[in-house]
Design a binder for these strands. Structure first.
Lengths: 114, 114
DNA sequence: AACGTTAATTACTTTTCGTAACTAAATATA
DNA sequence: TATATTTAGTTACGAAAAGTAATTAACGTT
């Protein structure tokens, strides 16, 4: 009947970018890697994510060209994860998340004991 | 044994902010509302999200103080959704998502017909 | 041969999501 | 009065994703 209201075109790239970043744990993993190369174990320890999901997300991020996976066949095997240029390009975005969170997010901290 | 490697403290606010934004559809809904007040129906039409989830997400975003819900008891009822100040404060973040997506995200567009 | 270590993977359960049908309220229409 | 219409949801249910814990693979040490 009346034409649908589409306030502005959802650019396919932007939509894909958002879908990508809004997969659970993706941003936190990238955030961790911002501070430098890390191996599987330390990512697992630093984030409240299970090994199963961490493995899955890292694989996805690697396929998207955001994360680089390097294998060092030592004993035991060492695998290093780091950000690619595409990954590092997310730094300003992460900074904005930090800024907004610092300004606006309230953590329920003042719980009163009964 | 050895102390866990925590490259930088995961600020609870930042962590909560990230969890919040990485709930499926949240960013896209906020993105839509950036262009102005909208009602349920037009959000549903503009986004590839079902009414069930849209309703759920809007309720969550309202509880977080990001979205304002206003009821106009007309016939049929009109309900307007808009961003609060906290919601509008996400504008720079959204801009960064747009910038990064434009620069780095490739949509699989060049599929070759066999 | 048994054990330790890292980086996963598999099996199984729980939670979240997607689809479609249904409800509620208020009015307009037959 | 009964029926239809419209918006904004909610409910029911199967499917997909996520959480948990046990298992595996590779390889060197004891």
């Amino acid at each position: 009947m009346n034409s649908p209201i589409i306030p502005f075109s959802l650019c396919p790239r932007v939509e894909k970018g958002m879908q990508l970043l809004s997969k659970r744990w993706s941003i936190l993993i990238i955030y961790q890697l911002m501070s430098g190369t890390q191996r599987f174990h330390s990512l697992e320890a630093a984030l409240p994510v299970s090994g199963r999901l961490l493995s899955e997300r890292l694989k996805e991020l690697e396929q998207e060209g955001i994360v680089l996976r390097e294998v060092f066949p030592e004993t035991p095997v060492r695998i290093q994860y780091s950000l690619t240029e595409k990954g590092h390009a997310l730094a300003p975005l992460i900074k904005e998340i930090e800024r907004w969170s610092a300004d606006w997010v309230q953590v329920e901290a003042d719980e009163v004991k009964s």
